[in-house]
Amino acid sequence: MIALIDYGAGNIRSVQNALARLGVESKLTNDAQELQQADKVIFPGVGEASFAMNQLQEQQLDRLIPNLQQPVLGICLGMQLLCNYSEEGSTKTLGIFDTTVKEFEPKLNVPHTGWNSCKLTSSSLFQGIKSSDDFYFVHSFYAEICDATSATCDYIQPFSAALQKDNFYGVQFHPEKSAEIGTKLIQNFLEL
């Protein structure tokens, strides 16, 4: 069973739809036992960081998530919440990835909206995906490049398009909105 962390933030329906298209059943839950027993956990998120952290704290998910043992995939805000700190609302976040989330300087249009390619490493998450392939991004904050960076994207400046440490994976883009390439990435995650 694939669990989607339900913390009352963002549009998670699109992730659930993407899984359903792959014929995979998923459950939206904030129940500790269900999350711990799931085969994989997806941590989606669209929204504002400090609001989202508050939601996680209220449901005591801030202590549960870092201790999950199975593969966990953070998407967009979900990925950012797995970092140390976010400038958005000056928020201390979950601290899996040792990096900071900063706001783009508006040298180009912000939010960074649209399809962009990434320099990928050999992570199993990117199997069958090329650095020339494009993913759909929409975000105003970015994670700085760090040791856990597994893909970089360049917009205004280079930033972490994907992060990976132990069983934790994070992507800044939206695989659930990235046509067949995004579907491939979700499939790769499910096969981990």
Partner: peptide, 8 residues
Amino acid sequence: IAAEITIP
């Protein structure tokens, strides 16, 4: 649409 379409 949301169930079927893979782009924004």
